[in-house]
Design a protein around this nucleic acid. Structure first.
Lengths: 240, 240
DNA sequence: CGCCGTCTTGCGTAAACCCGCAGCTTGTTG
DNA sequence: CAACAAGCTGCGGGTTTACGCAAGACGGCG
């Protein structure tokens, strides 16, 4: 059994290396990659079916790497090991995991024991292991209550990218007015009004910009999500 | 001699601990804090004059902690030790460093030897040590060419927060038109047009939102900068 | 089938935004 | 002091946003 570790930080990488050795005596080879690009390549070359993957890497982040890896070999088991449980990450991951794939999401703050258990559960038992903190987010996020629909999230990303209403309409095949409807929904859910109105007519916010900020502060968006969205946008622009 | 380490990540913390011991035999005590809040408190209690500080911590980030520490004791020597050299961080740090203070900025990717040298230079020799990569940014950023004026940066932050032109005018004591002038400058420097116009009248961008995105992608803004700016904004709002 | 909720679309309006033009106030320089 | 660059400000107008109102479209459900 081979395990591939994809992780930016040398310290974390060697920690992981040891953790894998300790948790999985049946594992005979551990290989390491220091960014997403190298990770993809090694996964391909070694046909590795067991991967521990950091999110947030400089060169090519974990989500992108995981997506291409899963596209090539959907049965690959990936344990995501991240510092944060930003909703943006959680959403990003659950968007790309193939049906029935075994994967995990463990925070770096987890104990050695928890990491050990996760490694065994996923790689040996093929079970999904989601950190309870992450799990909570997932439920709230994907459920209706207090959560964002895909269409709402979509439009959030679009204004975050800086598209005009018209451009969004074109991209999503909607009428101008529909785009604006969705924006209103979004503003509603993000609570952009209360902070805005507030009696005083001076303290007014630009709803569109404010929505993006609030989303950022709430970790609904983060750098890596923006980066991915920007790449998709460029693709679309080139495609026509 | 005492050294205070303020760092989120346990692995990095113990690595730093060892590095300090190795580099500074004259140091007899090393204390650790796992976030900015605790860091401030320990710095105060121990009157520590030598600090190694991570930027980007969950609870209270390094810049905020450093600011209050320096406010209380400006002669404190701080070595910032960070994963990234985002322009937002660099700008944030140089904004708060007191006149004549000895400080340093070293990337986590630096070699052991470089970290050792930085520790000795700052803590023993009272010299500033800025990673050359960071240094480059600093020059470019604070110089005119290709860099952003304080006023431009200020307005960038304001639109990123989601303020309207009118609100910005009120906050910065400017006329509406002046605000809009600065916005134009900003749009210019951020190159929001070329990506926008592009012949096709469909691919149009919302300049205001696009500017923020571009700034984010260029690391001119990041989460921590936003967070700080938001706090300042709230303060201002409360102040009237 | 009729009723109802959700989603989409068009019309119209008030406000906000982007910006060219031009007059003023500064600080700088020869 | 004249000249000039740089920044602030008001005016005017073309676009874009935000959103109420109301008319369809679609899918469940009794």
């Amino acid at each position: 059994m081979k395990v591939l570790i994809v992780e930016d930080d040398p310290l974390h990488r060697s920690y992981l290396h040891e953790a894998v050795n300790a948790a999985l005596p049946e594992c005979d080879t551990v290989i390491e990659a220091e960014n997403g690009t190298v990770g993809e390549k090694l996964a391909r070359d070694h046909k590795s079916a067991h991967i521990v993957m950091d999110l947030q890497m400089a060169n090519r982040n974990g989500i992108e790497a995981a997506r291409t890896i899963w596209k090539e070999r959907p049965e690959t088991r990936i344990l995501f090991w991240s510092n944060y449980s930003d909703e943006a990450y959680v959403r990003g991951v659950s968007r790309i995991v193939p049906d029935g794939a075994a994967y995990g999401y463990v925070l770096k703050s987890a104990s050695d024991e928890r990491l050990r258990l996760a490694l065994r559960s996923i790689f040996i038992e093929s079970q999904c292991v989601i950190d309870r903190e992450v799990r909570g987010l997932q439920q709230k996020s994907l459920g209706q209550t207090n959560g964002f629909t895909d269409s709402e999230y979509e439009i959030l990303v679009d204004i975050a990218l800086g598209l005009t209403d018209r451009a969004i309409a074109k991209r999503r095949n909607l009428s101008l007015r529909s785009v604006q409807n969705r924006l209103q929904q979004l503003y509603d859910k993000l609570d952009v009004y209360q902070s805005a109105g507030d009696d005083h007519e001076d303290g007014r916010f630009n709803l569109r910009a404010r929505a993006v900020t609030v989303a950022f502060l709430r970790k609904l968006l983060n750098y890596s999500a923006l980066e991915r969205a920007e790449a998709e946008l460029q693709e679309w622009l080139d495609g026509k």
